[in-house]
Nucleic acid binder design. Structure first.
Length: 525
RNA sequence: GGUGGGUUCGUAUAACGGCUAGUACUCAAGAUUUUCAUUCUUGCAAUAGGAGUUCGAUUCUCCUACCCACUACCA
């Protein structure tokens, strides 16, 4: 979700300004390579209606804008190794970086020693003089090591006492004393690739990136990035930066993580994702969210239009989006609001569209109803649903006769109508519900609706009146309307709550209604 | 620990330094309904705390508290 939102804001900004949205794959950590992840990202963006102007597509082909005159490919950083190497060396030659030969063990030891003194080890202007690098070793020794071995890194020579003045499109002016920063690794020995910091600056420069909109977790690295642009002499064409607030978990503290969703019953992935290890995480698409609803709710997490409008299409978002309306503080994700959005989008969708979306589900159940019939059902029930998947639960009895009669779920008492949901964000004013709420229905409520005399009345009414005249018949014969109607509903739908009797009869027909009423007697005696 | 960022109802957020601090979700109550849901009406609920600047502070400054991120040869 967080990644999609970041991509979305980038896309909205780019499109609004008439710019290009670039998808670059930052895969410089071979340890973290995940097969299929790249395709997953592209598919997710496509589902949301976001198509990069430049980048790679799901088939691995390079995509570039037709007007593009300056080729920027390749778009995978793992394929740009040679480019970065040259820039890393340029930095060393300029004195802005240096080679470091310290082994993992040596650094480990330095850290342990610092810790023993109650300090934290930092590779910086204070400590680099006592470590093994091209600043401390004799020149011929450095040459020898570079020639004989490949296990060296390049570190940025973080200046001492520089106050770095920065501007962020969302947060305004920020300044940091470079003395508090460390000599970040720019070139990794491990896979002979640059770290994010180097690759990002080099690529943004080469790809003529004008704005970088990324997560807040990058804010602490911003001074380093400013200093890198300066070291390369690229300050004049340096992109502008915007650091987005984080997406937080619905309850408790901390940022939204994979775990939260599965634990708390909502997706955190746009599409279902199966990790190489075989664990599957649910996705918004598979859970039944409409892509435009997903995009809409994501857009409103951290941004607002400044008006009271809440429903936006992607095109409207492009028009309305603005970075100065992006908030500074983290946004807790609210699953209830997410559902509300989908409900709104479901209602906006036409009955015919919804019927078409539902049809495969019906066919899978062995049903082959007339599309016009399904469309009629949809018109009747769409206001009761949040997802297309809800349709069956709401209206299965319009297709097949109930064989089971409700055991649970009737409003059994004021204080016990809904099961408690521990995973929902707590509203302190909500009533406390207990598990007794789901006590068996039959024992208590059957005699409310299924007393022999009520049943007799129901049967009489059904035998003598059609759907439209039913209520009038019951009234005029001085039968208890509510109880008789509910007895009929129980027979028709298997539940004591639900659609209107005449609506049900309209779809299943009067004969079928009568048959179901007689079946109820068989079942309940 | 250090550095940086943040803090308005439970949640998302609005409010040129100036109204009774608005809206949506959730929740509650009422109306409607043959039930449930829908719909409509109403309600509950917030400027973290303390100083300062000012005629006036949610808004600007400082301090404190709390939260978050970063502090990897990850991104």
């Amino acid at each position: 979700m967080g990644g999609v939102r970041t991509a979305l804001y980038n896309y909205l900004y780019a499109k609004q300004k008439g710019g290009d949205f670039v998808l670059r794959i930052e895969d410089t950590d071979s340890n973290r390579f995940v097969p299929g992840a790249e395709q997953y990202i592209i598919e997710s963006l496509r589902w949301c209606g976001i198509y990069p102007d430049e980048g790679v597509d799901a088939e691995g082909n390079v995509v570039e804008t037709p007007s593009e005159r300056h080729p920027h490919a390749p778009y995978r950083q793992s394929q740009r190794r040679g480019i970065y190497r040259q820039y890393a060396e340029q930095l060393v030659a300029a004195g802005a970086a240096y080679y470091a030969f310290d082994t993992a063990e040596e650094l480990e030891k330095a850290r342990a020693e610092a810790e023993a003194r109650g300090e934290t080890f930092i590779y910086n202007h204070l400590t680099r003089g006592a470590l093994r690098n091209s600043l401390t070793l004799p020149e011929d020794e450095v040459r020898r090591l570079l020639a004989e071995r490949t296990d060296w890194t390049v570190r940025f020579r973080m200046p001492e006492g520089r106050i770095v003045e920065m501007d962020d499109l969302i947060r305004g002016h920020i300044s940091v004393d470079s003395s508090t920063l460390d000599d970040k690794v720019l070139w990794k020995r491990a896979d002979e690739l640059p770290t994010y910091h180097l690759a990002n600056i080099v690529d943004d420069h080469l790809m003529e990136i004008t704005e970088v909109i990324r997560g807040e977790e990058w804010l602490p690295s911003l001074p380093l990035h400013y200093l890198l642009y300066e070291a390369f002499g690229w300050q004049d064409s340096q992109p502008r930066f915007a650091h987005l607030p984080l997406l937080l978990k619905p309850v408790g503290n901390g940022k939204l993580s994979k775990r939260d969703g599965d634990k708390m019953g909502f997706p955190v992935f746009p599409l279902r994702w199966t990790s190489p290890a075989g664990e599957t995480s649910r996705g918004y698409r598979e859970d039944g969210y409409f892509p435009d609803a997903f995009v809409n709710l994501l857009a409103m997490l951290g941004w607002n239009p400044g008006t009271e409008q809440e429903i936006f299409s992607l095109d409207e978002l492009v028009q309305a989006f603005s970075l100065d309306k992006v908030g500074k503080s983290g946004a807790k994700f609210n699953p209830d609001k997410a559902k509300w959005y989908n409900r709104e989008y479901l209602r906006m969708r036409s009955d015919a569209d919804l019927a078409a979306l539902w049809m495969p589900d019906l066919e899978q159940k062995g049903l082959h109803p007339d599309p016009a019939f399904v469309e009629g059902v949809v018109a009747l029930i769409k206001e009761r649903a949040t997802f297309v998947q809800d349709f069956w639960t709401i209206a299965s009895y319009l297709f097949i006769a109930p064989s089971e009669f409700e055991k649970y779920g009737v409003k059994a008492g004021a204080a016990s109508e809904k099961p408690a949901d521990a995973n929902r964000p707590a509203d302190p004013r909500a009533k406390v519900y207990d598990d007794a709420a789901t006590a068996p229905f039959l024992a208590k409520d059957v005699d409310k609706f299924y007393k022999p005399e009520i049943y007799a009345a129901a049967l009489e009414a059904m035998e003598n009146a059609d759907a439209d005249a039913l209520e009038e018949y019951i009234r005029s014969h001085e039968m208890p309307v509510g109880k008789v109607m509910n007895c009929i509903r129980l027979a028709l739908s298997g539940a004591a709550s639900g659609l209107g009797i005449s609506d049900i009869l309209h779809f299943i027909g009067h004969e079928e209604g009568l048959r179901r009423l007689r079946f109820l007697r068989e079942r309940l005696g």
